[in-house]
């Protein structure tokens, strides 16, 4: 057993072992700041020890960032003109 293995086992024991399967399910709770203190600690311990979950968390963040940058389709000129007509009517009432 290597030093690293021992560290892993000790941390597992102290934190209550978090599996990757559990980790991937609580990412949104974590990002929204709604994890309990204990679970937050367990989350960070797992994150520090697990490359796969670090990658997965970054993929989730990339996903969120991509969604926030989704471009809009342009408003069709006919629709814009029609809405503007309604605005003019509204203005004059």
């Amino acid at each position: 057993m290597t030093r690293e293995d021992i560290k892993t086992y000790v941390l597992d024991y102290l934190a209550g072992r978090m599996t990757c399967k559990e980790f991937v399910e609580i990412i949104t709770d974590y990002l929204d700041g709604s994890l309990s203190l204990l679970n937050r600690i367990r989350f960070h311990l797992h994150l520090g020890l697990c490359l796969g979950c670090r990658v997965y968390l970054r993929q989730m963040k990339h996903t969120i960032e991509t969604l926030g940058r989704l471009p809009d389709e342009p408003v069709p000129p006919a629709v814009r003109e029609q809405l503007l007509q309604r605005f003019r009517t509204w203005k004059n009432t």
Partner: peptide, 21 residues
């Protein structure tokens, strides 16, 4: 290691969100 990754997810490039949108 049950319930740990069987194989790790692949890292995406840093510019991924821009690249997609």
């Amino acid at each position: 290691w049950a319930d740990y990754w069987a194989s790790y997810p692949q890292p995406w490039d840093e510019g991924t969100p821009e690249k997609i949108v």
